[in-house]
Design a protein around this nucleic acid. Structure first.
Length: 374
DNA sequence: GTATGCTTTCGGC
DNA sequence: TTACGGCCGAAAGCATAC
């Protein structure tokens, strides 16, 4: 075999911690086991105002899902011995960090995605052997269970796309191996909407083209897809439907954006009332950036109106800065601009977002570490 | 015509 | 009967630069 550009099929694992927030709560309080557990984000409006963040599988059996209103979840669990708990992010962060450390030591290359998912490229350590990859996945599940008491679902595949979909195909506590040879069998029968990257909108447009399944999609003319969906997404659909994905497993650097959003005490268009919240959010988001020693090049105002539509207005700054005053000034201007441009609805939620992040003064980039001393 | 950067929206959990 | 969070990353859509 010539050189590092090996022709060996990659072996990639996707690890997904099951119903993560709710499972953390079960671990802290074992008496919750067997009962519906609903982890909620309560807004500042009091009562049951807010939405469900995560529910365990018992609660899901009653139709309770992430994103539904808390009041609706309570209705669906009326007369059932359910637990409604507020989110405890600090707990989940701590559990996540310890589990990610376990996963990392089993990977040639590691990529954490969000708080509860990770990709592991294990090609070298299993020598491209999917049976060994399955054994490794089993060992990882056993370690996470023994050390942290949590279950996870693992997918093994020849790339990230297939590994991710394999993990999703059997939950919770699943282990699904899809070898290169089995990729067509695995993907073809799935509804097109289950392909990673295909949401409700794309599924509908595919349906109008007569494409119902991933198999239909894989047989559709590539040029036709590009015509309908554009070069980038059209090509992605064509390749994904065939289980082709060559994106590498690689460590993610720093965050790309930091935002803070809150629900107002009542829906309003009063600039003073909204500005009070915006000032508070500006300080919060500034603190978030300072904590990671990040500067930013863009400030955005986020507004959710009483029709639950999301709006944003953003401003690119002259250069990177870490100045709170810049955030406060920009967000005030953006709020005024939004209120003059969107004149109908009242504002329900408001937020401030920083993007174009980079390391602050005196910080070397993460990628530069380790390159100087040898 | 393509690359790049900025603004806005979308979707997952 | 209605009900409705707080994040994140990715990508679409557009304007401008080369």
């Amino acid at each position: 075999m010539a050189g590092a550009g090996s022709r060996t099929t990659r072996a990639v694992l996707h690890v997904d911690l099951d119903y993560f927030f709710a499972q953390c709560e079960e671990r802290e309080n074992p008496s919750l086991k067997g009962r519906p557990v609903v982890v909620c984000v309560y807004s500042a409006r009091g009562g049951d105002s807010g939405a469900v963040s995560t529910a365990n599988y018992v609660a899901r059996g009653h139709g309770v899902r992430a994103g539904i209103p808390i009041a609706l979840a309570k209705r669906r669990l009326r007369g059932v011995d359910a637990a409604f708990l507020p989110v405890n992010r600090g707990l989940y962060e701590a559990v996540s960090q310890r589990i990610m450390a376990i996963l990392r030591r089993h990977a040639d290359r590691f990529e954490q995605v969000g708080i509860d998912e990770a990709y592991l490229d294990v090609t070298r350590r299993v020598d491209g052997d999917f049976e060994r990859a399955r054994e490794l996945a089993q060992r990882i599940k056993a370690e996470v269970s023994a050390e942290e008491g949590l279950t996870c679902s693992v997918g093994v595949g020849p790339n990230k796309l297939v590994a991710k979909m394999a993990a999703g195909s059997r939950k919770p506590d699943g282990l699904t191996v899809v070898t290169l040879e089995k990729v067509p069998d695995f993907l073809s029968p799935l509804p097109a909407g289950e392909l990673y990257g295909v949401g409700a909108k794309t599924e509908k447009r595919l349906g109008e083209l007569g494409i119902k399944t991933v198999d239909d999609l894989s047989k559709y003319d590539a040029a036709g897809l590009i015509e309908v969906f554009g070069k980038s997404f059209g090509l992605y659909l064509h390749r994904a439907s065939r289980g082709i994905d060559d994106t590498p497993v690689q460590e993610r650097g720093m965050a790309t954006q930091i935002s803070r959003i809150t629900t107002l005490g009542e829906d309003t268009r009063d600039p003073d009332a909204i500005m009070e919240a915006v000032r508070h959010l500006s300080r919060a988001v500034h603190a978030g950036a300072a904590e990671q020693n990040l500067r930013f090049r863009s400030v955005a105002l986020i507004a959710v109106t009483d029709d639950l539509k999301l709006h944003t207005r953003s401003k690119a700054l002259d250069g990177p800065t870490d100045d709170l005053e810049v955030i406060a000034e920009a967000s005030e201007g953006l709020l005024n601009r939004f209120l003059s441009e969107v004149t109908g609805p009242k504002v329900r939620r408001v937020g401030v977002r920083l993007s174009g992040l980079e390391k602050g003064k005196g910080q070397r980039k993460l990628t530069e570490f380790g390159k100087t001393s040898h």
